[in-house]
C-alpha cells in the first residue's frame, strides 16, 4: 500500500538540510547517510550519497531516473556468492 498523499514523500530532514547547504555553498561532497528510507527528490539529482547497507556506506550517484525511489534501493544489503558445492555428506543417498 502506498503512503498517504497528505503526508507527502518521506524525506530525511537532516539529509535535506545538508543537501541545501551544499547547494548554497556550491561544493560537492559525498554525504554519509543511514537514511535508507529517504525518498529521492529532484533536489538530490547530481549528488553522491554514501548509503549505509548495515556494514559500510555504499556510494550512490543519484541520476534523474532515480527520483521517487528510496535511497536504500541502491545500496544492497545482501551478498549472494553462489551456493556451496555439494559435500560427500549431502550427496550420499540413504
Amino acid at each position: 500500500m502506498g503512503r498517504s498523499i497528505k503526508k507527502g514523500p518521506h524525506i530525511d530532514e537532516k539529509l535535506l538540510r545538508k543537501v541545501q547547504k551544499m547547494e548554497i555553498s556550491k561544493e560537492k561532497k559525498v554525504i554519509k547517510t543511514w537514511a535508507r528510507n529517504c525518498t529521492i527528490i529532484p533536489e538530490f539529482v547530481g549528488f553522491t550519497f554514501a548509503v549505509h547497507n548495515g556494514v559500510k556506506h555504499i556510494p550512490v550517484y543519484v541520476s534523474e531516473n532515480m527520483v521517487g525511489h528510496k535511497l536504500g534501493e541502491f545500496s544492497h544489503t545482501r551478498v549472494f556468492r553462489g551456493h556451496s558445492s555439494p559435500t560427500d555428506k549431502s550427496t550420499t543417498l540413504t
Binding site: S63, N65, M66, H69, E73, F74
Partner: peptide
C-alpha cells in the same frame, strides 16, 4: 529496463 539500469534492488 529502467529498474535494471539504475541499479535498484528491484532491477537486480
Amino acid at each position: 529496463k529502467r529498474l535494471i539500469d539504475i541499479g535498484a534492488y528491484r532491477g537486480t
